[in-house]
């Protein structure tokens, strides 16, 4: 356990030394800031059904598509290319400890980035004197629900990104693989519903299980304050699977 925390602290520090982390952080906050501003602008023009926070977190996929590959592409691809991975594994550190430490560091950074977006409603509240406006901006169920969704789904997305990084020596290839994987997880399950046998209304079809994979529906549930155990199971089991596959890839593809 002590070794795991050592590697975790080292990986955390390396993330802060890496220019890719700063690029990811700046792009993430800039893009999400603009999106939040556009959402608030929409509220000034037309009445809206959903709160700003719900609308904001519905756009989670936009930053996920570039932040996750940017944060994870270095993980194993670069270390394998330079040979640092080999050097680390000649110590008594086990592949599983290394994988969990890298995952822990990158997940902490990802959570930090999303936590920074809490500043957006705070800044918006400073600019309004209307009590109703303040309540709308600080709608706690949708804010915490959205953040909880981001935190839970981030486990799966980042473990997928790390797995892609363990498959290649090239950061570019691992980023492309990661982007494709994320697209399949986020949008692919929705496209599956277009297949006739998979449509939820067809009796005896695969609609039920496929509905269980709908990432956007999970978000709506979380934002509405509904915390169902099924999405948790989906994201956690996916995370465990990808971390296991990453460990196998790291241990075998030296």
């Amino acid at each position: 356990m002590r070794r795991f925390f050592r590697v975790l602290a080292h990986e955390w520090r390396c993330l802060w030394l890496s220019p890719a982390s700063y690029v990811a952080g700046v792009l993430f906050l800039l893009l999400l800031g603009l999106l939040y501003w556009a959402i608030l602008r929409g509220f000034t023009l037309l009445p809206q059904e959903q709160t700003p926070a719900t609308q904001f977190f519905r756009l989670f996929w936009i930053p996920v598509f570039f932040v996750v590959p940017l944060l994870t592409m270095r993980g194993f691809a670069e270390e394998r290319r330079t040979g640092m991975l080999e050097r680390t594994l000649t110590t008594t550190v086990r592949p599983v400890q290394l994988v969990l430490a890298k995952f822990g560091a990158v997940y902490g950074f990802y959570l930090l980035l999303w936590a920074a977006t809490l500043l957006f409603p705070w800044i918006a509240v400073q600019g309004t004197s209307l009590e109703a406006g303040r309540r709308l901006l600080y709608d706690l169920p949708s804010l915490w629900g959205g953040l909880l969704f981001v935190a839970v789904s981030g486990l799966l997305f980042l473990s997928l990104g790390l797995f892609c990084s363990s498959l290649s020596r090239s950061q570019l290839v691992s980023a492309i693989l990661s982007f494709t994987g994320l697209f399949l997880v986020i949008a692919g399950s929705r496209l599956l519903l277009e297949i006739p046998r998979v449509t939820p209304d067809v009796p005896g079809g695969f609609g039920g299980p496929v509905r269980y994979l709908q990432v956007f529906e999970h978000l709506l549930d979380f934002s509405a304050g509904i915390v169902d155990t099924r999405p948790f199971l989906f994201y956690l089991s996916g995370t465990v699977l990808f971390l296991f596959l990453t460990t196998v890839a790291v241990a075998r593809r030296l």
Binding site: R6, V7, H10, C14, T82, G83, M84, T91, V93
Partner: peptide, 28 residues
Amino acid sequence: LGYMPENNPLPEDLRVGEFLRYRAALKG
């Protein structure tokens, strides 16, 4: 065993002392 791999890969961003202290911790 102590091992120095071919091409001697090292983390470019770390300082010498910092790297050796980290490795010492990993090596028990």
